[in-house]
Design a binder for these strands. Structure first.
Lengths: 229, 229
DNA sequence: CGTCCACTTGACGCGGCTCAACAGCGGTGG
DNA sequence: CCACCGCTGTTGAGCCGCGTCAAGTGGACG
C-alpha cells in the first residue's frame, strides 16, 4: 500500500512530505521517489506502534496525530520521554544497532504513520546524503531536548518542572485568546506526572495552587488557560 | 599545528584515529586525509574546553584524558550530562544549528583534544558520507544513554541511582582483582551527586551504607572496590 | 442520562535537603 | 620542611515536601 493519505490529501501530486523536516532538503522529484517506498498505516488511539513484543525495524514518520514514547521499568512505572507530533519521526534507534529493547510508542489519538523499511531507508541514505545530514540535525536537537529534560529532572524543583511544562505546552499546543493562551493538553494528569518523574496527586496539587495564585485557569481536564500577566 | 600527539605516538604513519569510532569506517588513505585537517590542543585539568564566553565552532575529539559535559543553571547548580573519554567526540550540537548556548565542557584530567573546524568538518561529511552514517549511529547511542538517565532520574529511587552509577563505572573504569572490581572514579563525590540530581551529603551517606552492608569498600576518595558476591 | 474512570483533596510518614560542625587532603608560601 | 588555608568529604540533627493510602468528586463518553 502506498501512502494513501499523503496522496489523497494533496491530489495535485505535491505531497505532505513537505511538512516533514527530514525530507525538507529534497527536490520535488526526489520526494516523489521517497513517496513511492513509503507505506502508511492507521493506528487507533491507545494502540501500540512500537512494542517489545511486536518487533518492526522501520523508520516511522508521523503524518497525522500524536504519539508518546515511553520507557517502562520493571516495577510498573513509566517514564514518558517524548510527545511526538506531525512531521516527527521515531524508530531510528532500532535501525542503527543499539536498540534499547524496552521502548514503547503508543498513539495518543487516532494517527496516521508512514513507515519505511530498514533496508529501504538505508538505501535512501546512500542515494540522498542530504537526508543523513538532516537526520543528524534532527537527532542533535532531540539530544538537546533530552539534555534539557535531564537538567530539569536533576536540578529543578517540582514546582518549576510543572510550570515549565505548561509553558512548553503553551508554545506547542496553545492558541492565543483575549484572556491568555488556551492550551490543549496532549497528556492526562497521570501522563504528565510520568513525564516529570512525579505522581498524579502532586501535579493535581500544583495545578490547583497555580490556579489559586491566578497564574492559570483549569478548564475541564484537557485544557488550561495560561493567563497573561 | 597538525595533530602532533597523534603523529608522535604512532611514528610509522598509522594514526590514533583507529581508536575513534567516528572514523572507523574509513580506509587508511582516507584517515590520512582527515589527519591533515586535525588540529590538536592540550588542556590542563580543570580547564574549560567549551564555555559560553569563548565560542568555538568545532568538532572536538578526545585523544587523551577525560572531560565532563555540564549544564549549569541560573542558581549555581550544575547538571553533569556526560563523562567522555578517549575516542568520544563533542561539540556537534553547535555545528548543526540548535546550539543550547550554556553548555560547559571541562577537562577532568590533563587531556589532548583534536579539533576540526566547522567548515572543514562539513566538507568532510560531503566527501565521506560514511562518516555521517557513523555519526548518526554514535548520536543514536548517546540519545539512548540520555534516555536511560532520564528514566533513572525520573523513576528510580536515590538508592538505586547511586548503586547503578557504581555498576556503570565498574564497567567503564573498573579493573578486576581477587576481591572484586577496583574502580577508579572519574568524578568527585560532589560531581557524582551533580550527575544524579542529589546532594554531596546524600551520596556520602549512601556509600557509607553500602560499605556497612558489605557491598563495596571505599579506598580513599578516588577508588571503590565493588565486592564480588 | 447514567456509569465509570480519572482527577481531586486530605492526612500522614519518610527520605533527602539544609544547615552546621568537623576531619582529611592538597596546594601554597614562608 | 612544616604551618596554614581552602576545598572536599563525612556525620549529625531537624525540617519540609513529596509519596502513599484513602475517600470523595466530577467530567467524559457511551
Amino acid at each position: 500500500m502506498t501512502c494513501q493519505t499523503c496522496l489523497n490529501s494533496h491530489p495535485k501530486g505535491t505531497t505532505c512530505m513537505r511538512r516533514v523536516p527530514l525530507f525538507a532538503p529534497l527536490s520535488l522529484e526526489e520526494m516523489g521517489e521517497v513517496q513511492r517506498i513509503i507505506v502508511q498505516r492507521e493506528y487507533k488511539k491507545g494502540e501500540f506502534i512500537i512494542h517489545p513484543l511486536k518487533v518492526m525495524q522501520c523508520l516511522f514518520i508521523i503524518n497525522k496525530g500524536k504519539v508518546k514514547v515511553i520507557r517502562p521499568n520493571s516495577d510498573g512505572k513509566e517514564q514518558i520521554l517524548y510527545v511526538l507530533t506531525v512531521g516527527d519521526f521515531f524508530g531510528e534507534q532500532a535501525l542503527f544497532g543499539q536498540m534499547s529493547k524496552d521502548i514503547i510508542v503508543e498513539a495518543l489519538e487516532d494517527s496516521g504513520i508512514c513507515t519505511i523499511s530498514k533496508a529501504q531507508f538505508q538505501a535512501l541514505l546512500q542515494q540522498m546524503p542530504q537526508i543523513a545530514l538532516k537526520m543528524i540535525e534532527v537527532m542533535s536537537s532531540r539530544l538537546t531536548k533530552m539534555e534539557e529534560l535531564v537538567e530539569s529532572l536533576g536540578i529543578n524543583s517540582v514546582d518549576k518542572r510543572v510550570f515549565d511544562l505548561i509553558e512548553e505546552y503553551s508554545l506547542k499546543f496553545g492558541r492565543k485568546t483575549e484572556q491568555g493562551i488556551l492550551i490543549q493538553l496532549p497528556l492526562s494528569r497521570e501522563e504528565m506526572a510520568n513525564h516529570l518523574g512525579i505522581t498524579r496527586e502532586t501535579i493535581s496539587r500544583k495545578l490547583a495552587k497555580y490556579q489559586d495564585e491566578g497564574k492559570i485557569k483549569l478548564i475541564g481536564h484537557k485544557q488550561i488557560l495560561l493567563i497573561n500577566k
